[in-house]
Nucleic acid binder design. Structure first.
Lengths: 132, 132
DNA sequence: ATTATAACAGTAACAATTATCGTTATTATA
DNA sequence: TATAATAACGATAATTGTTACTGTTATAAT
């Protein structure tokens, strides 16, 4: 079995992700982390993000914009995607029901997890549209 | 304004997608259509699929496997993704409780559309696991 | 028939991600 | 504490899915 070894880069990636409320892509994180580690490699960012996903410490998802997003919040929750500014907002856990609670009829299989995305315009974008 | 012109390739792409219950990627469709048009270009498949999406005749979605899938069914419905065989099964909205029922709290914006995916194992895969 | 142009096939370009490779840093063991 | 084993590194090449470009062909309007 493989034994993990500490790395300052991984620590930094994890911390960086923890302190952000957006849901950055690997590349967005890479840009941030380069401030602390100017010569970190993009490959290292990808490698560690995927490792953290495997370990269950973070989650990864795609919302249809062509790239993967990473989220430090691992417990079940949903996302609101603003099509105007691109922001991805976490929807509070209080809204969440268990997977089986969704079904009214018999399913074509056993669903372990589910993902729910809302697409529209966030309050901030709607307000700034009124102002102009 | 641009006026559409008929093309046998587009017709074939549309028919092919209409006659499939899976939700093929552009590449999967390309392989099928080459049986009828041996020298069709993958670019033509992409171009026409995106055009059909623009026209609202088909829809496009990603379920997290890194590529876009195309669906002839345009009315609102959900998807069940089997993680064992990769099959994507359409779920009529009637099968799932109205999503708005779950949201007691205020949303952080105005949601125009939403997408809901279930991930697990389909009945077929569960059965073949029992047999072996 | 002629002309305009949408669509084509082929291919190059692109963006996101993963794999490779020689080197460095971390941890286990002597 | 020195040494050995190897996880992780940075740099870069390769891969994958998709889009854009280019010269040619097919469709439909005049």
């Amino acid at each position: 079995m493989r034994t993990l070894k500490y790395s300052r880069q991984r620590e930094s990636i994890k911390n960086c992700l923890m302190n952000r409320t957006d849901h950055p892509t690997a590349d967005a994180l890479y840009l941030s982390i380069r401030e602390e580690f100017p010569n970190i490699s993009l490959g290292t960012v990808y490698r560690n993000l995927n490792l953290l996903v495997e370990l269950g410490e973070i989650i990864k998802f795609t919302c249809g914009d062509g790239s993967e997003h990473f989220d430090f919040t691992t417990d079940q929750h949903y996302h609101f995607v603003c099509r105007t500014c691109g922001k991805i907002i976490d929807l509070p856990v209080s809204m969440v029901r268990s997977t089986s609670d969704f079904f009214t009829e018999e399913m074509p299989g056993h669903a372990e997890t589910h993902a729910l995305f809302f697409y529209g315009e966030c309050n901030h974008c709607m307000e700034s549209k009124l102002e102009s």
